[in-house]
Design a protein around this nucleic acid. Structure first.
Lengths: 332, 332
DNA sequence: GTGAAAGCGCTAACAT
DNA sequence: ATGTTAGCGCTTTCAC
């Protein structure tokens, strides 16, 4: 591999001049520019990003942390982030936590190790304080996650309002008995909590009925959804809800599959609302009513914010882009 | 940020000893190990990955190139690769081409710039020779892609056989008139070509009927699929095929959606076979018969092969893991 | 405008 | 077993 030194030799110039050329410094005579360009072409020279970073202390890579990339919400997020990052000449390092705190810490350590110049966290497991402390090593932006008790820049939507609207919609449609699924524990932080607040508010205002055994916690996968359906069907007919709000399309699809399997009619026997508007939810046997998140905007705004921080600029997140919408289809 | 020098000073040792400790060299007295460990903890020291890489010439990051991460096939691939890479203490840089040659070259350049130590290409656009030439800067592995005219390590499945089996299955079921979708141009290289060979072989052997206007090229999205359905429905009833083989579930879903929309019965009016076995294809209004690819194994084997090359070991790909299977459901 | 030279943080001979 | 030293490829004063 050719180095800057080789280029300098071939062009009969000092490495300093070549370096200046590389960084388009002003005041290099046109004639030498040509010589440098020629030498570079001839040697097929490319600067070593590693060396540049060591010397200049400027990274060229940002990290993105998700729980699992196979979740379409996250893959669309990564897509948006990668596009915006590339546009600004940053590369993207991807890390998955699989809900494991250790993996999250490993990712934060990459900041300390100068592997990444900044980090977008689309998933948060650990203690906010501890996460915040890593900002010493590079900017961190929380994307679609919020924490309390620590000061970390955040890009979020109003999930409380969205769920409130969804539940109100159910009420309008005449559904009175509502079941609820959450990925969290119901009391924990994060968007789980926000959604639950929206749910509770709607239940109160619209005078809806909820029972303890209509509340499901820690459900994430379609497997979990099928389990939820089973649990519901265990109940005597009169004690079953008329509708269920789920925290993800996957869960909704699991419930739906199980119900249809057992011969029930949807939404007649159970109305279902999903969350995410994943591709193909429109193609299900019973097209799914679901809440669409502004994924592309979330990714884009997060990236813009992070890059601004890396480059010591300020950036105001455009909240207008960050609206959730209820996509009304057959299932509710 | 503390450096190795700071640690050495604090521990009253030379940087060399500390460096040895970092690389668990043999023969360091236990007593000094303690001192070093203590100093590191006190200073909250983490080695700079950048400096290590510059000096040791050993990268710690591999690149993975896909056309679009939002395609579930690729996100599952990335998932598998990330897991296997992490297990071996490599990080994963992700790049999307969006079918753009330029983006592919940019990715290859990362190899030259020492940003990545190796590259897994799950998508190939450019000239094989040109791609192969980048192997000078680091190993490249083709995952689920094959090229001719250049020598690049490859991890692939037998797509020809899988398609042959799928078409034969259609024949067995009594379908005689078969339409065909490909993402390529029909004559181009890659798995498109292999699948087409399987298709052609089955058509010949089983004496099936194919017409020119039942062949669709360059179809990729569900949008394209809907267009295919429209084209088919333009045809007089007697000139329509009884079944269609598609190159992806997305295309299959597009066709399905459009057909159902227009009031047709599936598979009665048209049998459909997809490709990929994407999650949720089992949950469609008409559950999709499709070919499942061994995604996890593809990712894992590719990664093992690449890492072996990076570390100058040899690795024999386990072909037994790389079998395609026809998942039989309702649509065909 | 251009060059000489000092390092960025680390590793790896070569000594001892 | 441990220290000394010379760089890895690049950027950036400081001279001229």
């Amino acid at each position: 591999m050719a180095t800057i030194k080789d280029v300098a030799n071939k062009a009969n110039l000092s490495v300093a001049t070549v370096s200046r050329y590389l960084n388009n410094h002003p005041y290099i005579s046109e004639e030498k520019k040509k010589r440098i360009k020629a030498a570079m072409k001839e040697l097929d020279y490319t600067p070593s990003s590693i060396a540049t970073q060591l010397r200049s202390k400027k990274g060229t890579m940002i990290g993105i942390l998700v729980s699992r990339i196979t979740n379409p919400f996250f893959s669309y997020l990564v897509d948006a982030i990668e596009k915006e990052a590339k546009k600004n000449h940053y590369n993207v390092l991807i890390m998955q936590t699989y809900d494991d705190k250790k993996a999250e810490i490993n990712t934060l350590e990459l900041l300390k190790q100068h592997v990444i110049a900044g980090l977008i966290m689309c998933s948060v497991e650990g203690d906010p304080q501890m996460i915040a402390s890593y900002q010493e090593f590079g900017p961190i932006v929380l994307c679609n996650e919020r924490v309390s008790g620590a000061d970390i820049p955040t890009v979020v939507t109003d999930q409380k309002k969205a769920v409130y609207n969804a539940i109100s919609y159910l009420a309008t449609k005449g559904y009175q008995k509502i079941a609820y699924c959450t990925g969290g524990t119901l009391t924990s932080e994060g968007h789980g909590r926000n959604r639950t607040e929206g749910f509770e508010q709607a239940v109160l205002e619209k005078n809806l009925t909820v029972r303890k055994n209509w509340i499901f916690r820690q459900v994430h996968t379609s497997q979990d959804g099928m389990k939820v359906a089973d649990d519901l069907l265990q109940l005597p007919k009169v004690e079953r809800p008329e509708a269920i709000f789920t925290n993800s399309d996957e869960v909704a699809m699991g419930i739906m599959e199980q119900m249809l399997q057992k011969g029930f009619q949807l939404p007649h026997d159970l109305a279902i609302i999903g969350f995410d508007n994943q591709p193909s939810t429109s193609l299900l046997r019973v097209p799914l009513t679901t809440i669409a998140q502004p994924v592309a905007a979330l990714g884009m705004e997060s990236t813009k914010l992070l890059l601004a921080k890396i480059e010591n600029n300020s950036y105001e997140v455009d909240q207008a882009q960050l609206k959730l919408t209820l996509v009304k289809r057959k299932s509710a």
